[in-house]
Amino acid sequence: MLKTVEQKKLYIVFDDSLISDNIERCFDAQFWLKQDKVVGSAKGRGTTWFVQLAKMQAALRHYRRGGLFGKIISDHYIFNGWQKTRSVAEFHLLQTLKQHDVNVPKPIAARVIKRNFCYQADLLSEKIPNAQDLVAVLQQRPLTETEYSAIAIQIKKMHQVQVNHTDLNIHNILLDNDGKAWIIDFDKCYQQQGEAWKEANLQRLLRSFNKELNKRQIKWTQNDWQSLFNAYQQF
């Protein structure tokens, strides 16, 4: 069940079936470190901390800006209401996708701290167990037609919910040990009517395959793309 904490400068939404204790402290990496529940980390724009909860492992991410502007204002965003903040919007988008049986991380908790006209944001979401992104997998081996079909089906299901993944690339698609495909990182993504943008999503994904082919010599060919595209069209 979803619950909220709302104060003048603080807003938290969380799933109390996944986390309930210390909800106001669970966005602090030091809180988890002191309990010896940090099981790993990953570097991106900032550090994503992987922590052990009672029912699953989770990824704790603090929202940070990229690019040149991010070097000036690293983690502050203009405030236009709690529901329009990046962490709360991503939390609810993940909820919607889960309800429509799309393989995405379970949203656990989102926090917003308001600071005058700006805010800072954090998200705690499920860490998909025993999974690697497509870049890591394709550096080791080519994917099977069945695996490309699994990826295509999740993208199609996402599109059927009218969710525009504005950064659909092969770093944001995972394969787990059971061959299930997962889509991650829905920051700045949203539901959108119409159809034309879906082709743009697919073209962005195709560009990322070609980019990593040139950059890392991944085990991928244009025929593999045709397998994925055919499965997408047929689902």
Rank of each mutant, 00 (worst) to 15 (best):
D133F: 07
K34A: 14
K198R: 12
E90Y: 08
M56Q: 15
S87R: 04
Q30A: 15
Q203G: 04
D167Q: 11
K188M: 11
V104L: 07
M158F: 09
L93W: 00
Q57W: 03
G67W: 02
D28G: 06
A54L: 09
A121Y: 04
R64I: 08
Q234I: 10
W225R: 02
M1F: 07
W197R: 02
A54D: 14
P129S: 11
D21C: 12
I183Y: 01
Q222M: 13
F14D: 01
T146N: 11
K34L: 06
G70E: 09
M56T: 14
D133Q: 01
S74H: 14
H76E: 13
N169T: 01
A58S: 07
F209N: 02
F31H: 10
G194S: 10
Y119N: 12
K127T: 01
E6D: 07
R141C: 05
I73M: 14
Y63T: 05
K180S: 01
F79C: 04
D16Q: 14
R216K: 14
K106Y: 14
K43A: 15
W82M: 01
G70H: 04
F31A: 06
C118G: 08
V88C: 10
A58M: 12
K219C: 07
V112A: 13
Q162E: 13
Y77G: 02
Q35S: 11
K211R: 12
E147S: 05
F31G: 08
F209P: 00
M158Q: 07
F229W: 10
H92E: 13
I184P: 02
M56D: 00
T4P: 00
I170E: 08
K215C: 08
E212L: 04
G67A: 00
N169S: 12
P129F: 06
P105V: 12
F235K: 12
